[in-house]
Amino acid sequence: MSSIERPDDFAERREHLQSLSDSELHNYFWELVDQIVAPLIEEARTHTSPSIERSVLLRMGFSSIEAKAIVKQMGERQLLAHGAGHLILELAKANDLSIREAGLGLLDGQYWEQLPS
């Protein structure tokens, strides 16, 4: 572990790399990097965050203030796993509203009962 002090043991540590050609070393470098990055990208693929959800609502035509309030209230109700934009779009479709009407309606306290529990 690196939190301890350690002298420069490069000469011993590198022994298994010595026989690699330059291009083998290059490929090995990138293989290791991809191995490190794979679980990180998988976490991103399967998770969201309040900022991601706010960024979705910005793209759907809400202001930063509206997006922040909607995402906050959805977060408090544990709804963000479905996606804030998804919930608003489905609400708009079901009630024949525009996207903004649906989102601002939520901020007025309406339609919450129609969202998944």
């Binding site: 969201t48 796993a81 479905h82 996606g83 934009g85």
Partner: peptide, 8 residues
């Protein structure tokens, strides 16, 4: 993200 997660 739930199975029905969406971002349109």
């Amino acid at each position: 993200r739930a199975d029905d997660y969406g971002a349109p």
